[in-house]
C-alpha cells in the first residue's frame, strides 16, 4: 500500500509539470502581461518598467520563463517560491496559504453534505424501489444535476439578503479579529452554510444514483439470503451487510465527485465572494497575474489528484478484495 501511494505521488510530478508548462505556454499566447497596467499609467518611468521586466524575467522567451519559475518552485532549500502576485502585492505562496484552506474547507464540507443527504436517499430509494418516494427522488436528482451552481448561488444570496439569516458572502465577519475562538468557529460555520449547500447539491444527484443502483444490485446477492438465514434482523442485513458492499463503488465515485465539487466551488466562490483559490484565479486571470494563475492551477490539480488518491486508499480500506501491489 505504501509503495502504491508513493508511486501515485511520484506520478503526480509529470502531471503537474505538464499542466503548468501548458498553462505558461497558453498565457503567453495571450496578448500583454501583468505589467500592462503599469505601462498604461501615463507617468510610468520606462526604466522602472524595464527593471520590473528583468526582475520578473519577462524579457526572456516564455519557455525560459517557465524554467525560471520551475527552478523557484521546486523546494531545493525546502521552501517553494511561487513568485510574486502583482495584483495582490504579496508572495503567491503566502496568498495560496490564505486561500487554499478556505477552498479545501468548502470542498470537504460540500462533499460531506452531499454524502449525508445522498446516501440515505439512495438507500431508501433502493429499498423502496419503484415507490412514489423513489420516483420523486429521481426527479429531484435530475433537477439537482441540471441547476447551474452560479444560479443557485444567486438564489442563495437573494435568500440571505431577504431573510437576513445568513451573511451576504465572504468567509468571516468584519469583527472576526476581535472574536473568541468559539465565536470564530461559529462565525466561519455561519458563512460556510450557504456555499456548502450550493456546491454540494450538484453532487447529490450522482452520488444518490450510484448508491441506489449499487444497493439494488447488492440486495439481490446471495450473501443477503445467508445473513437472513442466520436470523439477522432486516435492518442489520441492510445497513451492515448490504451497505458495506454498496458503498464501495461510491468511494471511487467520491473521487470524481470531488472534481465537480472543486469546479463548482469556483463559481460559488466568485458569486458569493468567498475567498478561496477559485475566487483568486478568476481575478488573477482578469489581471493576467500569471504566477497566481500557475499557483492556483498547481494547487487545484494537486487537490484533485490527492482527492482521487484518498478515495482509492479509502476503497482499499473498506473492500478487503482490493489490495494494491
Amino acid at each position: 500500500m505504501k509503495t502504491v501511494i508513493a508511486r501515485r505521488l511520484i506520478a503526480l510530478i509529470p502531471m503537474l509539470l505538464g499542466i503548468t508548462f501548458m498553462a505558461t505556454m497558453l498565457m503567453h499566447l495571450a496578448p500583454g502581461d501583468f505589467l500592462d497596467q503599469v505601462r498604461m499609467q501615463r507617468d510610468a518611468d520606462p526604466e522602472y518598467i524595464e527593471r520590473l521586466e528583468r526582475e520578473f524575467g519577462l524579457d526572456n522567451p516564455w519557455y525560459v520563463q517557465y524554467f525560471l519559475w520551475l527552478k523557484n518552485v521546486v523546494p531545493w532549500d525546502l521552501r517553494s517560491d511561487f513568485g510574486y502576485s502583482f495584483h495582490y502585492k504579496v508572495d503567491v505562496w503566502e496568498l495560496l496559504g490564505q486561500r487554499l484552506p478556505a477552498t479545501i474547507l468548502l470542498s470537504v464540507t460540500s462533499l460531506a453534505f452531499a454524502w449525508v443527504i445522498a446516501i440515505p436517499l439512495g438507500v431508501l430509494a433502493a429499498i423502496y424501489k419503484d415507490s412514489i418516494f423513489d420516483r420523486i427522488s429521481s426527479i429531484l436528482a435530475y433537477a439537482a444535476l441540471s441547476i447551474p451552481e452560479f444560479f443557485l448561488a444567486l438564489l442563495a444570496l437573494f435568500f440571505a439578503a431577504r431573510t437576513g439569516l445568513f451573511p451576504l458572502g465572504g468567509f468571516t465577519s468584519t469583527e472576526f479579529e476581535f472574536m473568541s475562538p468559539v465565536r470564530r468557529f461559529f462565525d466561519v460555520a455561519h458563512h460556510l452554510i450557504l456555499p456548502t449547500i450550493v456546491v454540494g447539491i450538484g453532487s447529490i444527484a450522482s452520488i444518490m444514483r450510484i448508491m441506489r443502483a449499487n444497493f439494488i444490485d447488492n440486495i439481490r446477492s446471495e450473501y443477503v439470503t445467508t445473513a437472513r438465514a442466520k436470523g439477522v434482523p432486516e435492518g442489520i442485513v441492510m445497513f451492515r451487510h448490504v451497505f458495506r458492499n454498496a458503498i464501495n463503488p461510491l468511494i471511487t465515485a467520491a473521487g470524481f465527485a470531488f472534481s465537480s465539487i472543486v469546479s463548482g466551488a469556483l463559481m460559488v466562490e466568485i458569486v458569493m465572494n468567498y475567498p478561496g483559490i477559485g475566487h483568486m484565479i478568476f481575478h488573477a486571470i482578469l489581471q493576467q497575474d500569471q504566477f497566481v494563475v500557475l499557483g492556483a492551477l498547481v494547487m487545484s490539480s494537486t487537490m484533485l489528484i490527492l482527492g482521487n488518491l484518498l478515495a482509492d486508499i479509502a476503497l482499499a480500506w473498506n473492500d478487503p478484495r482490493i489490495r494494491y501491489d
Binding site: 502531471m15 498553462a23 499566447l29 495571450a30 469546479s263 486571470i285 487545484s300
Partner: peptide, 21 residues
C-alpha cells in the same frame, strides 16, 4: 487526456479563455 482531466474543469476553462483577447 489524463492531463486535461487532471485540472478541475472550470479552472482550465478560465485559463483557456484568459488566453484569448
Amino acid at each position: 487526456i489524463e492531463l486535461v482531466m487532471a485540472v478541475p474543469g472550470l479552472y482550465l476553462l478560465l485559463v483557456l479563455r484568459g488566453t484569448f483577447p
